[in-house]
Simulated scan of single mutants.
Amino acid sequence: MDPVSNARRLRRSQTLAESKLWAIVRGRRLNGFKFRRQVPVDRYFADFLCREASLIVELDGASHEERVVHDALRTVVLERCGFRVLRFDNELVLTDPGGVADAICATLRLKA
């Protein structure tokens, strides 16, 4: 499957946490920074990417507890591509979306 079709499929099948975070970051709602969803970067798809700030936000669900090594490698690859990577558990996005937004904003301010 080509990257564009795969990204489109991932956007259509987003998790509840992804949907909640998308509602927070879409439309330049965080300090005017533009975020995109499910963007191909190297061999991965970044959950949320802000090119202007060279920032990727990754959400980790329960399945990620068993994929610590894989996620660490993924982070290394994304950082080598020039991005800073923030990771949040899905549960945190669902229970404290304001705190997650504040953490992202703090990182965005470092780039401003």
Rank of each mutant, 00 (worst) to 15 (best):
V93E: 03
P3Y: 10
N31F: 03
E79K: 15
N6L: 12
D102E: 13
L30A: 06
F45S: 05
K20M: 15
V4I: 15
V100C: 04
R109F: 02
C105P: 03
S19P: 08
N31D: 09
E18A: 12
R26E: 00
H64T: 06
R36Y: 03
T15E: 11
Y44M: 09
Y44E: 13
A53S: 07
S13G: 12
E58D: 10
T75A: 15
T15M: 13
L49Y: 06
A17H: 10
R43H: 14
L55S: 00
E18I: 03
D71C: 04
L30F: 08
Y44G: 14
R87M: 10
N31Y: 11
M1G: 14
N90A: 04
L21A: 10
A106K: 11
N31M: 15
L16F: 09
W22P: 04
D60Y: 03
L10D: 11
A62Q: 13
V39G: 14
S19K: 06
G27R: 12
C81E: 11
D102W: 09
V93P: 02
D42S: 15
F45C: 11
G61S: 08
E52C: 01
E66Y: 14
A62D: 13
V68T: 12
G99K: 07
L78F: 05
P40V: 05
G98T: 11
R12I: 12
A46Y: 11
L110H: 08
D96I: 05
H70K: 07
G27K: 06
V77R: 14
L10W: 07
E66D: 15
L30N: 10
C50E: 01
K34H: 08
P97D: 03
V76M: 15
L92G: 04
L94D: 08
A72T: 07
F33H: 11
Y44D: 15
D102H: 09
R36L: 03
V4L: 06
L10G: 02
V4P: 09
V85Q: 09
E66K: 12
A23E: 15
D89M: 12
D96C: 10
